[in-house]
């Protein structure tokens, strides 16, 4: 791009840049101070107000019991491994199944109409059922059938329910990615004699998946939390362990322990996702400036 500022204006421009740099520095400092001050005020108010509430002593005793926290920590940590395992297995299956559904939905032409219809129905149905309801339906319903050769394990069916629901969501994420790749990319691949699926595999999907990594991670944060729902089936995972501990002692601190465990994995994932989104935006803006 040509420099629009004529030479005799350089002095003017330099002074503005200096002022700009100084201004930016001061502005940053000011906003940090403001943020710090307002945080201090809010936290101060909470610390001052909450203990004044009528039920505070009781809540403190039932939810923030130090000894209880220590006692239930290991047991819940152990049970939390079940959540992690469930999450890992379900996530791996969802990543693949959702991709298959998204690809089914992207196939063009009248020949593939039944395939597309199937994919649409799938996505509509399983996004429409409350997750907890599907877990109950499958987790209690299927084992009750007592069919020979079908697993009757609740955890298994809880996992199946999560796979079904999350594959529906994630297939939509993939689909948005596939749609965002310009048709000329497919045309270029096809014109080289690559078939429909080779073009998808080597040209369209790699670009599509790269673009949807942040929203994919977002859905997986949801999945991490929703592993706790299988507690309704009696599976001993972190939430169930907490409720067992809590009912044994009439103290709710175990729920706090479970909360801490969940936050320990969801917050890093959330930060990572936000960072990726921000990086993406920066890249796109940089790309836009070049183009």
């Amino acid at each position: 791009m040509a420099d629009p500022v004529p030479p005799h204006d350089h002095g003017f421009r330099r002074s503005r840049i200096l002022a700009g740099a100084g201004g930016r520095w001061t502005a940053a400092l000011t906003s940090s101070l403001i943020a710090l001050a307002s945080t201090a005020v809010v936290v101060g108010l909470l610390v001052w107000l909450i203990p004044k509430s009528k039920g505070f002593e009781e809540v403190k005793a039932t939810f923030f019991d130090r000894a209880q926290f220590r006692d239930s920590f290991d047991g819940i940590g152990e049970a939390f491994k079940t959540n992690i395992k469930l999450f890992m297995v379900v996530e791996a299956i969802v990543l693949v199944l959702a991709l298959v559904i998204a690809v089914m939905r992207s196939l063009p032409g009248p020949v593939f109409f039944p395939v597309r219809a199937l994919a649409v129905i799938y996505a509509d149905v399983f996004r429409g059922i409350p997750t907890i309801l599907l877990i109950l339906l499958l987790g209690f319903g299927v084992p009750a059938l007592q069919v020979e050769g079908i697993p009757s394990d609740e955890m298994f069916w809880g996992g199946v329910a999560l796979v079904l629901v999350y594959s529906a969501y994630v297939s939509e994420v993939y689909r948005a990615g596939i749609d965002s790749v310009h048709p000329s990319q497919d045309a270029a691949a096809r014109s080289l004699g690559l078939g429909r699926f080779r073009s998808l595999r080597h040209v369209v999907l790699p670009q599509a998946v790269r673009r949807v990594i942040p929203p994919l991670l977002n859905d997986f944060i949801g999945l991490q939390k929703d592993t706790a729902l299988v507690f309704q089936l009696g599976v001993v995972e972190a939430l169930n362990q907490a409720s067992i501990d809590a009912s044994a002692t009439f103290n709710y601190t175990p729920y706090l322990v479970t909360t801490v465990f969940f936050l320990a994995i969801t917050i890093p994932m959330t930060r990572l996702t936000d960072w990726l989104i921000a990086r993406d935006r920066r890249r796109r803006q940089a790309g836009g400036a070049i183009a």
Binding site: A189, L192, G193, L194, R198, H202, V203
Partner: peptide, 8 residues
């Protein structure tokens, strides 16, 4: 090389 490898 994509075309020669994957198509041919």
């Amino acid at each position: 090389t994509l075309g020669p490898v994957k198509a041919l």
